[in-house]
């Protein structure tokens, strides 16, 4: 049996909203350590890797490792029925072909239960080595979302140039061109508002902005986003999920033909 309970069910709903535009279905790997998921988009340009550690749940029980094929589209629809302060329990009974989502209102007066059929999915797993990136930019996730949205107006691609002083996002297309430069924050009252840059080497990489905008669907999970970059290496775009884990998106760069 698998059973995991989250007092703040809305966190789980935000995780699903963060994933479901990039991947519509995925296999959840459940073990004693927690829940992990790795999935690529259909064109194999971007990948998402999710970790939710067991100690982040109020209660967590996983008697044996399970691979659960789940439609994220359907799960998202079910989770929309959850109240904003509801507690969420996810359960898979032994020998069952369904996942059960139970939602309980804070005053414990309302209790809803939905079942979603599990799917048989082919999953391809990519090994992603630990990487010492040349540059890690940390910035407010709302600011990153706004920049990606704005860059998409100008063109299909965005070039991210990072130096020790700042980071520049630039795009050009048929309508024209533009760029936004953010300087490293010198002093900020709140850490979540800061832009900080750890840099060993300056980098300039070009990415399809459409994917970056999909990654930004996960921005409501976290005040800050980390962008890790090295030349000729996929971008790693990370949002923390509270203290319990993270969503990491990987995106292959574009190269000059």
């Amino acid at each position: 049996m698998f059973e995991a309970r989250l007092a703040q069910g809305s966190i789980f709903a935000k995780v699903i909203e963060g994933l479901r535009e990039l991947v519509t279905e995925a296999t959840w790997e459940c073990s004693g350590n927690g829940i992990t998921l790795q999935a690529m988009d259909s064109s194999h340009v971007a990948l998402v890797s999710l970790v939710l550690r067991s100690d982040g749940f109020e209660t967590y029980r996983c008697d044996r490792n399970m691979s659960l094929g789940i439609s994220l589209t359907s799960m998202s629809k079910v989770l929309k029925m959850m109240g904003k302060d509801d507690t969420l329990t996810i359960r898979v009974n032994d020998d069952s072909d369904a996942i059960v989502l139970s939602m309980e209102s804070q005053n414990q007066e309302e209790f809803a239960e939905y079942e979603l059929r599990l799917m048989d999915l082919d999953s391809e797993h990519l090994g992603i080595p630990d990487t010492d990136y040349s540059c890690v930019v940390k910035m407010p996730s709302t600011k990153f979302s706004r920049i990606c949205r704005d860059m998409a107006i100008l063109g299909d691609s965005v070039t991210i140039c990072s130096t020790k002083d700042g980071v520049k996002f630039g795009a050009k297309g048929d309508v024209g061109q533009g760029s936004i430069r953010l300087n490293q924050s010198t002093n900020v009252d709140k850490e979540e508002d800061a832009v900080s840059i750890e840099l060993r080497e300056a980098v300039a990489l070009t990415f399809a902005v459409r994917y970056l905008n999909m990654f930004c669907k996960a921005a409501p999970l976290s005040n800050q986003v980390n962008l890790s970059m090295s030349e000729d290496t996929p971008l790693m775009c990370e949002f923390k999920v509270g203290d319990m884990g993270h969503i990491r998106f990987y995106l292959a760069p574009k190269i000059e033909d």
Binding site: H125, I128, A208, D257
Partner: peptide
């Protein structure tokens, strides 16, 4: 002209 790469150029299956 820019060309989009795929992740399999960087990471291996398995």
């Amino acid at each position: 002209k820019q060309q989009q790469q795929t992740l399999s150029s960087f990471y291996h299956y398995g």
